[in-house]
Design a protein around this nucleic acid. Sequence first.
DNA 1: GATGAATGAGTGTTCATTCAT
DNA 2: CATGAATGAACACTCATTCAT
Lengths: 207, 207, 207, 207
Amino acid sequence: MDEIDVSTAFSRAPGRPREPQTDERILDAALRLMAQQGFVRMSMDMVATEAGVTKPTIYRRWPSKIELAMAALVAYCDVTLPTVVGDTRTDLITELEHFRHAILRPNGMSLLGTVLAEEHETPELLAAFRKYLVTPRRQRLTAILAAAQTRGELSANADIGLAVNMLVGALYAQYLAATPFTEDWCTRVVDAVLVCLGHRTNADKAG
Amino acid sequence: MDEIDVSTAFSRAPGRPREPQTDERILDAALRLMAQQGFVRMSMDMVATEAGVTKPTIYRRWPSKIELAMAALVAYCDVTLPTVVGDTRTDLITELEHFRHAILRPNGMSLLGTVLAEEHETPELLAAFRKYLVTPRRQRLTAILAAAQTRGELSANADIGLAVNMLVGALYAQYLAATPFTEDWCTRVVDAVLVCLGHRTNADKAG
Amino acid sequence: MDEIDVSTAFSRAPGRPREPQTDERILDAALRLMAQQGFVRMSMDMVATEAGVTKPTIYRRWPSKIELAMAALVAYCDVTLPTVVGDTRTDLITELEHFRHAILRPNGMSLLGTVLAEEHETPELLAAFRKYLVTPRRQRLTAILAAAQTRGELSANADIGLAVNMLVGALYAQYLAATPFTEDWCTRVVDAVLVCLGHRTNADKAG
Amino acid sequence: MDEIDVSTAFSRAPGRPREPQTDERILDAALRLMAQQGFVRMSMDMVATEAGVTKPTIYRRWPSKIELAMAALVAYCDVTLPTVVGDTRTDLITELEHFRHAILRPNGMSLLGTVLAEEHETPELLAAFRKYLVTPRRQRLTAILAAAQTRGELSANADIGLAVNMLVGALYAQYLAATPFTEDWCTRVVDAVLVCLGHRTNADKAG
DNA sequence: GATGAATGAGTGTTCATTCAT
DNA sequence: CATGAATGAACACTCATTCAT
């Protein structure tokens, strides 16, 4: 580059620029600690130590522990999504498999637990969790099923909202029961739910 | 026994008797605080204050905070159970309704959250929750469905474990979605799951 | 015994008699704990547990922790004494050997430390220690040396008080230096001190 | 170095500087409390109050009560030493006088008592006391006597270790006996010990 | 903008002692 | 007389947050 980049030379913030990657390191540490030990046990000291910064460095970015936890949670929710191929059963299985991995990744359920446990003391956490994780996932599942219904694959009066509950909820219940997940677990859940919905492919109808 | 039980009629426990109802007041306070604020935030000071006793009075009964929390949790799990009448659909609805009330009672989900959040730091809590609440409920649901299968109401290859997951899990999912429960919610879940299981009553078969 | 022992039948204290040996068990436990952990760390709960009694049982005998500690200390000081044979050197060695065993018995120096450490908070302990242990021992040593001086074995102007200090103190110093005691340690101390005192036996003088 | 040391001349330690004199005030308070009341009774709250700081200010400097006590003890041991002039008797008297003042300074013996009392529960204290106070003093006394022996002032087979024990120990014994120290106390101890060692000055030999 | 220092309120737990039976 | 229950104050240590440089 021979020329000075005018756009950055004149528009950058005054004073010492923030260390890049520091935000990310802090959020990573906060999320890891919150998932492992819960929101209350996650101490700013430990976050600072694990992130390799000092506490005021954190407080300069987020004004309180709650804000930090929120930011970490939102970053956690921002995951790459599975792609939809158009086949109802396949897409449901893919989506559920993706969800299963999210839940079973280390401390995934502990994080959900923390969020639920803080419902009264720190309701923002559950609100963010719902907004950025629960609702989007449900919307994707709902969209897959609604498209199938539009295509005539499902009975017209099928209760899609209930189907989403059963798909997602079966995972929570299985985890709470502490019984291990088999390889074909997601497939079986999807197939069972599709039965409820009166599913038949266009091939079925043609046959 | 023709004679009066001397040990109870004439003797008396040695030492100063315990203040009556103290145990219950402590456990109530502990459970309330744990459900509202989580295990970590539940402080022995607050439990003592809310129960109207001093801390050593608590420590005389339970040797540590964890033991107290465990006792409160077990007491919470020890609820009166619905009676089974023998009709599959009715019994499932009754059971699920009972579960819904347990979950929706104040802070029921927060308590579950606390238990999940403490999975790494205080695993005893989740273990007790599973032993005294989750597993018994699943066993009752399983028993209802297994009886129905024996009577030929369900298809022989119906996956009862999966059905239980869907019944119970739908509730968790609905709660997490933050959508309100309608009056007929349980009925619709049960009916949907019974479809999956190929349910038909003997009346159906006779007809 | 065919006859009732009148002397005890009529003179014994009213009410339930105290369990014999209980006092001793309590004092033993108290002394052991005080020597091992110090006066402050010796808790009435631990004393009660180790003695197999309850705390009010202790408080009925001694009105406070300090009184109990005093009683235990006095009982500790009441040991069987070495017999004096009349030979100055032999008696000094025997006495010093006896002292050495007392100091080196488990926690002997720790007990002395506790007593010194409590000089400001619980001065009774040091006072009792001096009265029942230090002073008697010094008096025995002084008596041995005074007798020798009377017999003309020591120079007339020998400083007996200083000699006692050197005899006893050498042991403290050796302990503090953390150097091990040899077999002939006491002998060498006594011989050295006797040199200071200009000691010569009558046999010496006769020769 | 011809140049000014830039690091000290122009740079400054990063972060908020420590309140000056805080370390000293904390150590003073800790030592005073430990000497007066013993290690167990010395509470961090009291140290903080007496030093005019808050508890975390203490914990920022020393990670635990034990570490603080150790630091206070080491600071206590770090005293200015008497200078050696080369005359055996004079140097011994000076050294012993110095020791006597250390022991008799307020609570000096109580501090020694605490250190001994904690031998089992907190052995670091006695170890530090030995390392920084007992051993150095003994080494100085030993050096004085060894030099005298080299010069031929003492008999060749004089037991210097024992002599050190008697010099130092006489002080402990005198204190325990609770008899007051006279003005010429140290002189008399030294003279007595020198007799044991067969001391004669070169002047003696020349005469 | 980043640092290390400081704070006040809290944590779970134990203490010597007293009470009621 | 001995028991088990109760108390209020203290214990070492940690917290989220703010300050001074």
